[in-house]
């Protein structure tokens, strides 16, 4: 049970970073930390003690397998996470070239 709690604390660390930080790169890092904790939670839910990785060996098929459904969901989500993180980075680099700073408070002031 403690693993679920630790995973949730990792999520909360990311949430804290998103709310309190003012630097855009730090916010992007915090978002990806939240993302990772979600992936970890999915993988934890699918785990079973004594299970093997979900690869069927036709020779002896009677085994306990780990749940393949959360793994399939996370597999696509990781690649999407890379694409969205790089989109965030594109927005950040664009803002930096225009305003010369990563600080959201300053960017808000500069816009007036």
């Amino acid at each position: 049970m403690i693993v679920y709690w630790l995973c949730f604390i990792l999520f909360l660390v990311g949430l804290y970073g998103v709310i309190t930080r003012r630097n855009l790169v730090k916010i992007a890092i915090s978002l990806s930390i939240m993302e990772f904790s979600t992936f970890l939670f999915f993988a934890l839910v699918g785990y079973i003690d004594g299970g093997v990785a979900p690869i069927v060996d036709p020779a002896d098929p009677v085994k306990v397998y780990v749940d393949p459904l959360p793994q399939a969901l996370v597999l696509t989500a990781i690649v999407i996470g890379l694409a969205t993180t790089s989109m965030l980075m594109a927005v950040i680099i664009r803002l930096y070239r225009k305003y010369g700073t990563f600080d959201i408070r300053e960017i808000k002031n500069l816009r007036g």
């Binding site: 690649v79 890379l82 694409a83 790089s86 989109m87 980075m89 594109a90 680099i93 070239r97």
Partner: peptide
């Protein structure tokens, strides 16, 4: 599709940095 997507994102970032 995945290989081309990630390569496109990377190339777009590199080209943008060069243009600037």
């Amino acid at each position: 599709e995945v290989a081309a997507s990630i390569l496109t994102i990377f190339l777009a970032l590199i080209i943008f940095k060069e243009e600037i």
